[in-house]
């Protein structure tokens, strides 16, 4: 069964971040043989004085393929994990979406997109979760994290929001690589320019220090930008600064 697992508001200024907790939940799923997990995405939500957040207001989400017999156990264990591991003063929320049976994916995506530019309430989140029969639960504090958890799932489902957690490890120490070789990497689905142009397989790309993909077009997409004049390759991978809007 394909699911999205999304969490938010689990940290404080000196605790491990929400991404680290998402990675631990994913690891638990694999270790206990409940299923397979896929990359974690970070989704930026609205920054507004009326919204309580630690430092950046981002939700973390990952997809998983879970043995249907283990789904409820997995949800209960994830909730228990959040209770135990979330930081003092945090307001953790957990959302689990069964993507194949979600009755109105457009509404879920719409909630995620709204959470990037509007102040939403817990009632808004619970109301939609009830209507779509999604799992949405709070695990401490004010439980305000349910809003971001639901939004994170919606944005992941949109296929067009957020950066992948972590950076890619590429074999070898070459400073240039072809698009074909990049697309053969298990964590890269597409290579395209910031303007949205897909590059031919033979195109050579200069690799930066950190190679990171974003969620675009439903896949893990490596964005590249034009090199300075005179460089060996015409394109290079994007820097942190160039990816900050994703």
């Amino acid at each position: 069964m394909k699911v999205l697992i999304s969490i938010d508001d689990t940290d404080n200024l000196d605790s491990p971040g929400t991404g680290a907790l998402a990675a631990e939940i994913a690891r638990m799923i694999r270790v206990r043989n409940w299923g397979q997990t896929f990359c974690i995405t970070r989704h930026q939500l609205y920054i507004h004085p009326a919204i309580p957040y630690t430092s950046h207001n981002s939700a973390m989400c990952f997809a998983a393929d879970i043995d249907p017999a283990c789904t409820e156990t997995m949800i209960a264990a994830s909730a228990e994990f959040l209770v135990e591991q979330s930081a003092v003063g945090s307001d953790p929320g957990l959302c689990v979406v069964r993507t194949e049976t979600c009755t109105d994916p457009g509404a879920l995506v719409g909630f995620g997109q709204a959470a990037k530019s509007q102040v939403l309430s817990k009632e808004d989140a619970y109301c939609l979760a009830r209507r779509l029969r999604l799992h949405l639960s709070e695990h401490g504090g004010t439980g305000q994290g349910v809003i971001g958890a639901l939004a994170g799932a919606g944005l992941r489902l949109s296929g067009n929001d957020g950066r992948m957690r972590g950076r890619l490890t590429l074999s070898g120490d070459a400073s240039q690589i072809t698009v074909k070789a990049l697309r053969e990497h298990r964590d890269i689905d597409a290579v395209q320019t910031l303007a949205g142009e897909l590059l031919p397989d033979s195109t050579l790309i200069n690799l930066g220090d950190k190679v990171k993909t974003v969620l675009l077009g439903g896949g893990s997409t490596l964005l590249v930008t034009e090199e300075v004049a005179g460089a060996v390759a015409r394109w290079r991978t994007c820097s942190n600064q160039e990816l900050k809007g994703y």
């Binding site: 491990p16 991404g19 970070r42 950046h56 950066r163 957690r165 950190k210 900050k244």
Partner: peptide, 8 residues
């Protein structure tokens, strides 16, 4: 956390 970096 490196995932929160926006500066190079």
């Amino acid at each position: 956390d490196a995932d929160e970096w926006v500066a190079d």
